[in-house]
């Protein structure tokens, strides 16, 4: 009995168990400090839907051995360009959201392709380089947002008539365009964005299906044993590049879904740190630097977003202080740190 518990803790890793227990504690404590459970659950689900696709974007690259995708901002930038263009063209409703995705797709493919080629030349150092490629691409886009010729009065600075604003509202264009499909309310506080969930699970389904094709099978093998893959005729670099492209496209879709739920497009330094919560979520769900599944995405996103939703309300009520930011930083980075120290690379 004690052994099975020990094994379970070892398999799951103590940080994950602590995080899960913490979330359970938050839900149990919520009623005692007058935090409404239905509202909390609803918030958690909404945020799950918002972030799920971006977390899913981690999976292909982990599978192919490229490590944690700290370069997610690249996909996000493609998504932002799609979204901004769709607003510029005054596209509304579902047409607007899917239009944004359609325009983001070719950009994401091009970015992902270049990014993949780069990562193939720096094998072993992907994560650090990905981080800084992400950072510098966000920074260069800051310059671009200022000088790209967008001129919709809904988006540019009023006083100058040029240069995009830091946040752009999509309320009158396509906020909740997907989310409101077959959505329902349950009492005053419970809202369920059915459409977002359908979209997320469609994405998951597509990835799951892809993983069962010949190419998908090969991709997973490249990550777990590149020597084996090579010996069986798999082109390692091609698989890696493909996985980076898929990740980048998912990142673009992910940010558009995020914006349609959130109601705003955040430009400039907005996407700067967006990779980190997604990375942390997939790790909390049970993924490692080398292995990730769709189940990890679902579990991890629920746990992580649950904590983010619940801590401000519950902990604030308990100790009368807002510690949520600190808890978020410690939980997410602690989880990444734990995963990074689990395996020592190479032989000694």
């Amino acid at each position: 009995m004690i052994n099975t518990i020990k094994n379970f803790i070892e398999d799951a890793g103590w940080p994950r168990i602590l995080i899960a227990l913490f979330l359970v504690f938050l839900f149990v404590a919520a009623p005692f400090v007058d935090v409404r459970l239905d509202a909390s659950v609803s918030d958690t689900l909404i945020r799950f839907g918002m972030n799920g696709v971006m977390v899913l974007a981690m999976v292909p690259m982990i599978q192919s051995g490229c490590g944690l995708n700290f370069g997610l901002p690249l996909g996000i930038i493609a998504g932002l360009l799609g979204a901004v263009t769709s607003v510029q063209l005054e596209m509304h409703g579902l047409f607007g959201v899917f239009g944004a995705m359609a325009m983001a797709t070719p950009l994401a493919i091009i970015f992902g392709w270049g990014y993949g080629l780069l990562l193939n030349r720096v094998k072993g150092d992907e994560m650090m380089i990905a981080t800084y490629v992400g950072f510098s691409s966000v920074a260069i886009m800051c310059v671009m947002w200022l000088i790209l010729p967008y001129d919709s009065p809904k988006m540019v600075w009023g006083y100058a008539g040029e240069g995009l604003r830091t946040t752009i509202s999509v309320e009158e264009f396509w906020q909740n365009a997907i989310g409101d499909i077959a959505s329902f309310r349950f009492g005053e506080f419970f809202y369920f964005p059915t459409g977002v969930f359908v979209f997320f699970f469609l994405c998951c389904g597509a990835i799951a299906l892809f993983m069962r094709t010949k190419t998908g099978t090969a991709m997973a093998t490249v990550g777990s044993n590149p020597e084996f893959a090579k010996a069986n005729g798999v082109n390692i670099n091609r698989m890696r590049t493909l996985s980076v492209i898929i990740s980048t496209v998912l990142g673009a879709y992910g940010i558009i879904i995020y914006q349609q739920s959130f109601g705003f497009i955040q430009l400039y330094m907005g996407p700067f740190y967006m990779a980190f919560p997604a990375v942390a979520a997939v790790l909390i769900g049970g993924a490692s630097v080398k292995k990730a599944s769709i189940m990890n995405v679902i579990v991890g996103t629920i746990l992580f977003q649950g904590i983010l939703t619940m801590t401000p309300s519950v902990i604030n009520s308990i100790i009368q202080t807002d510690m949520s930011e600190v808890i978020r930083i410690i939980v997410s980075n602690g989880m990444i740190l734990y995963a990074l120290t689990r395996v020592v690379r190479g032989r000694e």
Partner: peptide
């Protein structure tokens, strides 16, 4: 030492993590 071969990315994340701890200490 536990993350030999990927010291930089680990130190980078460790800095973020400790930033959280620093805030916890100094702010609370």
């Amino acid at each position: 030492n536990k993350a030999r071969g990927r010291e930089m990315v680990t130190a980078f994340i460790l800095a973020f993590f400790m930033n959280g701890v620093y805030q916890l200490v100094v702010l609370y």
